[in-house]
């Protein structure tokens, strides 16, 4: 059984919801990411979503755009991100890791080369924001053949017909984008999310994660009532930004890890309550 599958199975047995933090790899410097991943697991993360920095993050709001820019100052590449995950796997063989990013770095590496390398590094799922299933005839088999879950987004504009099409190709879990907009947008409407999740649940048996617009422990708890997983990104990356200009990287990194851990612990508590 894949790590993602057994993660959701175990959570279901314990009647719990998955907490999925997103951070951009290499933000604000490459040294932090490995420690931050382990710290997030200790603070209650069930799955880690690791952003692959890209020069043109079309679907991201200002907070994650800046995260990409900070990571790219150090030239953090897809290859570098895979190396970090490989290190993470030396001491953690259970927590699933999902890559989130844009197609071009994968396209340039080549789908097969990428999928083999990612699988070898210990990646479990790949969420590529700008490849719909219609364009993924070669991408999906490359991932599948290497034991990687292609994770796809559903959005408020996705028709029921498209949901069925997308869920046919998706595995691992479904990621529901809770708002029309970019990452870090305000005001997620929990009633509307619940209504949409009901429809998605009729279309697929896959677990459903909800992201975009989850900023507080309260919202996380509310979404946890209706979803299988809660994804929190910009709220964490904000904490990176606030400490990105510390006197030294080492000093800033300690504060970032502390603050992100605290937020995750409070979300974990709220989700489990």
């Amino acid at each position: 059984m894949s790590r993602i599958k057994s993660c959701f199975a175990q959570l279901k047995n314990n009647n719990k919801k998955a907490l999925i933090p997103y951070v951009a790899a290499g933000d604000p410097n490459p040294e932090i990411t490995l420690d931050l991943m382990h710290a997030m697991v200790q603070s209650g993360a069930d799955i880690i979503e690791l952003g692959v920095p890209f020069s043109d993050p079309m679907a991201d709001g200002p907070v994650i755009q800046k995260a990409s820019e900070r990571a790219l100052i150090y030239g953090t590449s897809l290859t570098d991100v895979l190396a970090i995950i490989k290190q993470f796997r030396e001491t953690n063989d259970t927590t699933p890791v999902v890559l989130m990013g844009y197609l071009n770095p994968i396209e340039v590496m080549g789908y097969d080369v990428f999928a083999k390398a990612a699988s070898g590094a210990g990646v479990d799922g790949v969420l590529t924001v700008d490849i719909p299933p219609e364009e993924a005839q070669d991408y999906i088999p490359a991932l599948r053949q290497n034991g990687l879950d292609p994770i796809f987004l559903l959005s408020p504009t996705t028709t029921r017909e498209r949901m069925a099409l997308i869920c046919q190709y998706a595995s691992g879990f479904i990621y529901y984008v809770a708002v029309k907009g970019v990452t870090g947008t305000a005001a997620l409407d929990t009633t509307e999310v619940a209504r949409r999740l009901k429809i998605i649940n009729e279309v697929t048996d896959l677990p459903i994660g909800v992201g975009f617009g989850i900023k507080s422990a309260e919202t996380a708890a509310a979404v946890g009532q209706v979803a299988d997983a809660v994804v929190v990104g910009s709220a964490l990356v904000n904490l990176v930004e606030q400490n990105a200009h510390a006197l030294s990287n080492a000093e800033g990194n300690i504060k970032i890890i502390e603050e992100i851990s605290q937020v995750l612990l409070s979300m974990r508590t709220a989700l489990d309550a």
Binding site: A59, D130, I131, P132, L153, T157, T158, R162, V177, G181
Partner: peptide, 12 residues
């Protein structure tokens, strides 16, 4: 060519 966009733009 093709269509390489986030899901929210597929229907529009």
């Amino acid at each position: 060519g093709g269509i390489f966009v986030p899901e929210t733009l597929m229907e529009p």
